[in-house]
Design a protein around this nucleic acid. Structure first.
Lengths: 196, 196
DNA sequence: AGATAATGCATACGCTCCGTATGTCAATGA
DNA sequence: TCATTGACATACGGAGCGTATGCATTATCT
């Protein structure tokens, strides 16, 4: 073996994150036993404490990983659209849709904020909000939207969409509710547009 | 003593709810030891399990109590305003301000949803959202706002304001952030108004 | 009114889980 | 090659939760 050392370490970290992510995303943070999911990864709690300090540390690592993926996806979506405004709307819709995925909803919108406090705060603004902010900045520079503080708008959208997602996901008939939610949400977005 | 029976029972329930509310609102649900706060109330976990089934049951009771208080306050605020639109804006502002109170923020916006799932769902729409919905309904009937689904709008406002509150509460300089947040929020509200 | 059933609540027990302290083995570096 | 560091496992103690049980007081029945 050439340089197995660093590889093994990284592999262990990856296994722990993956195992924790699966457990947190399904049964939830509080119900996830560290002994259980480390054991499923062929490890023990010793490795977890060594790498992440404690259970919260692992959750934070999981969140950063998911946040990076979300940022990437949001950027792709907005880049693919023909116009900036359209890209922005698509981006917001994608944000709602992502919040409908059980893993993201559970970890990023439920357990994360509850355990670590406001996720959008404990780091210098995580990627997924920054992505929305950037899109708004570009629109503002183009004069396409009203004069509004972009970070505030991004957080408004973040809060509104996450609640829309919760609403949809917990509804008896998600499709019908989804129509209402997206329609109302787009109405709100439309109001940001400069009207002449 | 006349009819101490029912009174004593109600008093026990009240003590448990009060003790749980204080513990949940300060150190948080997860950190609150049932032995501790029942003991502070001069009771034991036995009483808690008897009345509420488990820790979640008590949290639910606490939430219902707080929700009722919030509803009452929101109704008062909107009733006191000179016009309906003004009352609505005041009501929304009051909602944000309430979400800034540590107890409400912690229990209603952080631990509650995390532990019980979407609070605005597990009952047939709790009071504080219903209050917003009613205000919107009246405005719509008066033709003051655009044609939008009122429940959706209420939930959008709920989500946005709770995130605004989180943002403000966790900021280094809450006053400055509060200005930005409220300004942006009112801009969003203003967009609901029918423009002619 | 006395006996019995039921209820409100406390006590006792076992279990799971977490955090830390300790141990062990492999890899690195002089 | 030997000492040291780091990665990870094992071992132990404690806390918290849920349930089963016990006890006292009140309600119900005849």
């Amino acid at each position: 073996m050439r340089k197995p050392r660093q590889e093994m370490i990284a592999e262990t970290r990856g296994k722990l994150i993956a195992a924790g992510r699966r457990a947190f995303g399904t049964i939830g943070y509080a119900e996830a036993s560290m002994d259980d999911f480390t054991g499923e990864a062929g490890l023990t709690r010793g490795a977890l404490y060594h790498h992440f300090g404690d259970k919260k540390g692992l959750l934070q690592a999981v969140i950063m990983e998911i946040d990076a993926e979300m940022t990437e996806r949001l950027n792709e979506v907005s880049a693919a659209a023909p116009t900036r405004w359209q890209g922005f709307v698509e981006e917001c819709s994608a944000y709602i849709e992502m919040a409908l995925e059980p893993e993201i909803r559970r970890i990023m919108f439920r357990d994360g904020p509850a355990v670590l406090g406001d996720i959008s705060q404990w780091q210098n603004t995580p990627g997924c909000i920054a992505a929305l902010s950037r899109s708004l900045d570009r629109l503002k520079a183009d004069g396409e939207i009203i004069d509004i503080d972009t970070e505030t708008a991004a957080r408004l959208i973040n809060g509104a969409s996450s609640h829309m997602a919760l609403w949809i996901a917990n509804a008896e008939n998600p499709e019908a509710v989804s129509k209402r939610a997206v329609a109302g949400f787009k109405a709100m977005l439309g109001s940001l547009r400069r009207q002449e």
